[in-house]
Design a binder for these strands. Structure first.
Length: 152
DNA sequence: GCCAACGTTGGC
DNA sequence: GCCAACGTTGGC
C-alpha cells in the first residue's frame, strides 16, 4: 500500500465537502501537471491512504484522511470545451490527463498545521515541506505517515 | 534547444 | 496583496 498527500483549497473543495458527497466519494480531477498526473495514472492504487491537505487558507495543514477507491482513469472534463479544465490536446481517443476517486475516511479533531509539520525533526524529508514544492500530490513514506498520524 | 516572458501555486 | 519558486509557452 502507498501513502500520499493531496492538496486542495477548502474554499473550492474541502474535507467537509467530501463528507457530504454521495458515498463520501469524489473524483480528484482537474490536475494539469505531468508529475502529478503520473502519480494519478501510474502509481495510485485502490486502498492507498491519502492525507487530505488544505492550502491557501487560514491554517494550511492536514485535516484528515481519505482513501483511493478507484485507480487512475481518464479525466474527461479535459474534453469539455466549457469546462474550466478543458484541454484541446486531450481527446477521448488519446487522453492526456487522469483522475482517481477518493473516499472520506476520517477527519482529524484538529488541523496538523504546515508550521508544525515543518518543525518536526522526523519530517524534514517530507516532500510537502521541501523548499519550492508546489505539486498538488506528494508521496508520503510509511515512516512519515506514522509520524504524522502520531501528532493527531 | 535555449531562454525570456508569462502564468500559477501557495505561504505569509 | 506580495513575492519566491517553479512550470509552460513560444520566438528564434
Amino acid at each position: 500500500m502507498n501513502y500520499w498527500l493531496m492538496k486542495t483549497e477548502p474554499s473550492e473543495f474541502g474535507i467537509d465537502d467530501l463528507i457530504l458527497r454521495p458515498n463520501q466519494t469524489e473524483p480528484w480531477d482537474g490536475v494539469r501537471n505531468y508529475q502529478a498526473r503520473n502519480m494519478l495514472r501510474d502509481a495510485m492504487q485502490v486502498g492507498d491512504q491519502v492525507f487530505f491537505y488544505h492550502s491557501n487558507c487560514e491554517i494550511p495543514g492536514i485535516v484528515g484522511i481519505a482513501e483511493i477507491v478507484k485507480a487512475g482513469y481518464p479525466d474527461d472534463n479535459a474534453f469539455e470545451p466549457n469546462d474550466k479544465h478543458y484541454d484541446p490536446k486531450s481527446t477521448p481517443e488519446k487522453p492526456i490527463w487522469s483522475k482517481v476517486d477518493v473516499k472520506f475516511v476520517q477527519k482529524f479533531a484538529r488541523t496538523l498545521s504546515l508550521k508544525e509539520l515543518k518543525a518536526h525533526p522526523a519530517l524534514q524529508e517530507l516532500a510537502l515541506v521541501r523548499r519550492g514544492n508546489r505539486l498538488s500530490i506528494n508521496p508520503v513514506s510509511p515512516e512519515q505517515w506514522a509520524v504524522i498520524l502520531s501528532l493527531e
